[in-house]
Design a protein around this nucleic acid. Structure first.
Length: 443
DNA sequence: TGGGGTTAT
DNA sequence: ATAACCC
């Protein structure tokens, strides 16, 4: 009578994985740049506001969205839709970068497993936190659910997986509450049993809300997302190739023969793609560490002389040097990036080179010699990339291979980095008093 | 269409 | 170094 265990994979697969063991939260800040600008100037809060980079409105607040303004819309179109739209320049990312790290830092106080994705998203693996709460549960205690549950599905309080996710919704609520009360920032959260699903579910109810996805609804939720590109990890290139195979909807992908996927993408990518379409994914949260590279770019109308290139380098280099010296680590590699004029799909080309050994120690201090030397190295690099005539629309400088310097013990460590970032805590946030939250049942 | 980032090959 | 991915 002993049925053999379904031997799906007796390989090195994570033992804990199926059974929906983990609880993952994805936090997605609402129109982040616009929020930061509204904190800097509260007058803007009640007005339609966008942040502008060159001729693009990159984000806008919800007042502006009422007029039909959306992400990455041209300034021209946005102004047509809303002539009284206020635009602030968002080309210097410093304020956003700083607030972004404050957010990650705050989340890190709850849980060491925080992963950043861009400036405005974070993943947390709160499995252990949830487990602790689970163990502390009194025999017949009521477990509140916070925020929405996808499909308004009833939580089954007999099911330990459901209970853990419900506890996770409480933690997500607390995280969002702290972001609002301490930093004045709102965002959405998704709670699910892996990163991919947590991320996809977080945007279901949009500003300042959260959504919980139960395992029974994985398939249905994925099918509801109709297009394959909604799956994180399936980008534009993969989408093109899939569409050539006749696959457009997630459901198409779920049902598509794996051996045909393997012919197109190779075994490992095919497996990944197929599993993603079913919501099966077990990648770990990679704890955040100090950035592995710094870069600074600028785009502009065509330039075509070396002198212009040199000028752009002179604008960008000091800013980067300042950031590097704040960080405390020293770069071993210098990178130059360009975009050539007929901007073939906005592609950039990069060249790197090692930074001469004797220059590396000079990076911490204010250093006048450093600038001209680096400038020359960059110009040489530039000449190597270009042969003769050129037209450029973008220049990018970057430092990488960041090395902690002996003598700077602990600089570059996470703690040090976070301290620096949060030092100018001019707590100008007279936020609404902390209110005891009542679970939103269904709004 | 901007100004960033990471990982895989 | 490039290409793919993410925001």
């Amino acid at each position: 009578m002993e049925e053999p265990f379904p031997e799906e994979q007796d390989e090195e697969e994570d033992e804990e994985w199926p059974r929906g063991g983990r609880v993952i939260v994805h936090i997605d800040l609402d129109c982040f740049y616009a929020q930061v600008e509204m904190l800097r100037n509260p007058q803007l809060r009640s007005k339609p506001l966008g942040t502008q980079q060159k001729n693009i409105v990159v984000t806008c607040n919800y007042e502006a969205r009422k007029f039909g303004i959306g992400k990455l819309m041209s300034v021209k179109e946005a102004k047509e839709k809303c002539p009284e739209l206020i635009l602030v320049n968002g080309e210097d990312l410093t304020p956003y970068r700083e607030m972004s790290y404050k957010v990650t830092e705050l989340l890190g106080e709850f849980c060491p497993l925080v992963e950043r994705l861009g400036f405005d998203e974070n993943f947390l693996d709160i499995t252990e936190l949830v487990e602790k709460k689970f163990q502390e549960l009194e025999p017949n205690s009521q477990i509140p659910i916070f925020g929405h549950v996808y499909k308004e599905e009833a939580v089954n309080f007999q099911d330990p997986v459901h209970i853990r996710l419900a506890l996770g919704s409480g933690i997500a609520w607390e995280l969002r509450d702290r972001l609002r009360s301490q930093l004045g920032i709102t965002g959405c959260a998704g709670i699910a049993s892996n990163k991919s699903l947590a991320k996809m579910i977080s945007g279901v109810f949009k500003p300042d809300q959260q959504t919980l996805l139960l395992p029974e609804n994985h398939r249905e939720f994925l099918s509801s997302l109709d297009h394959i590109q909604k799956i994180p990890g399936i980008g534009s290139k993969t989408t093109e190739r899939l569409e050539k195979l006749g696959v457009r909807k997630i459901q198409d992908l779920q049902e598509f023969p794996v051996f045909l996927l393997e012919k197109e993408f190779g075994i490992s990518a095919a497996q990944r793609i197929h599993e993603l379409s079913l919501g099966q994914e077990n990648s770990q949260i990679i704890p955040w560490k100090p950035p592995q590279s710094f870069s600074d770019e600028d785009s502009f109308p065509k330039i075509s002389t070396e002198e212009e290139v040199r000028e752009k380098i002179r604008e960008l280099l000091p800013k980067l040097l300042e950031r590097i010296s704040q960080d405390g680590r020293k770069p071993q590699t210098l990178r130059l990036g360009i975009r050539k004029f007929p901007g073939k799909n906005s592609r950039r080309e990069f060249r790197q080179c090692p930074i001469p050994k004797h220059l590396i120690p000079k990076f911490g201090q204010e250093n006048e010699e450093l600038l001209p030397i680096l400038e020359e190295i960059l110009m040489k690099l530039f000449r190597k990339m270009i042969g003769g005539k050129f037209q450029l629309t973008l220049l990018s400088l970057g430092f990488s291979k960041l090395q902690e310097f002996p003598g700077n013990l602990g600089k570059g460590s996470i703690k040090f980095y976070l301290k620096r970032e949060s030092q100018n805590k001019e707590m100008d946030t007279p936020r609404a008093p902390k209110i005891q939250k009542i679970p939103e049942n269904s709004d």
